[in-house]
Amino acid sequence: MDDATQMKLEAATFRRLMQHLLHDRKDVQNIDMMNLAGFCRNCLSRWYQEAAAEEGITLGKSEAREIVYGMPYDDWRAQNQTEATPEQIRAFDTAFAENVGKPE
């Protein structure tokens, strides 16, 4: 497979992942994704921002989140996010430290 075809397929796969996470499975909470998989929608937005920076494109955190969430992050949270349990928060603290690093 040539590089252009691989990039095209990877882009299509990413778009499908975004469709799944943002439209098909709004019920899946970021905290559960992080606790189980070690990444969440916020991680995707950070990776998007980092990829933009590698291309010399300045993209702020809120701009990257809006691209990934398809709307302002605060709107997404208000519409879709539920209150985390103490157990979820403890598991998140561990998963975040293992997969992202120490919180800022």
Rank of each mutant, 00 (worst) to 15 (best):
R77N: 09
E50Q: 07
E83W: 06
N99G: 07
G56M: 00
S62T: 11
M1R: 04
M33D: 05
H23S: 11
A11K: 12
Q49G: 02
R41V: 03
A53K: 05
D93Q: 15
V68I: 15
D3K: 12
T94F: 13
Y48V: 01
Y48P: 00
A51Y: 01
N30H: 07
V68R: 00
P103V: 04
A84E: 12
E54T: 01
D93M: 14
I31D: 05
F14M: 14
P86Q: 08
D27H: 14
F39V: 10
E83T: 14
F14C: 12
A11R: 12
T82H: 12
R90I: 11
G38R: 08
R77P: 01
E104N: 13
D3R: 09
Y73A: 14
G101Y: 05
A12V: 07
Q6C: 05
D3M: 10
T82F: 09
A95Q: 07
A78I: 02
A12P: 05
F96V: 11
A97M: 12
V68P: 01
V28D: 07
L9S: 05
C40I: 02
A53H: 01
D3V: 11
D2W: 02
F96C: 07
Q88V: 03
F39S: 05
Y48K: 03
P86T: 07
R77Q: 13
V68Y: 01
Q6S: 02
L22D: 06
Q6W: 06
E54W: 00
E55P: 00
H20N: 06
E66D: 04
R90P: 01
T5D: 06
Q6N: 03
L36P: 00
A4D: 12
A4C: 04
W76C: 11
Q88T: 03
M18S: 09
I57A: 00
L59K: 06
Q19P: 02
Y69I: 01
T94V: 15
T5V: 11
N42T: 11
Q6V: 10
M7L: 13
R46C: 05
R77D: 08
A95C: 10
A95S: 15
W47A: 08
T58C: 01
A95F: 10
E98M: 15
L44A: 08
D27K: 07
A11L: 08
C43T: 11
R16G: 06
T85S: 15
M71R: 12
S45V: 01
L22M: 15
G101M: 04
H23N: 14
M71N: 05
E50W: 03
D27I: 09
G60E: 08
R25N: 14
M71T: 07
D93V: 08
V100N: 07
F39T: 06
G101P: 06
E63I: 02
Y69W: 02
R65A: 10
R16H: 13
G101Q: 03
D75E: 15
F96S: 08
Q29N: 05
I57D: 00
R65Q: 13
S45R: 03
L36I: 10
M1G: 11
T85A: 09
I67F: 05
I89Y: 13
F39C: 05
E66F: 01
H23G: 08
Q6I: 12
N80T: 13
T94E: 15
E104D: 14
T13E: 09
P86V: 07
G60R: 04
E87L: 12
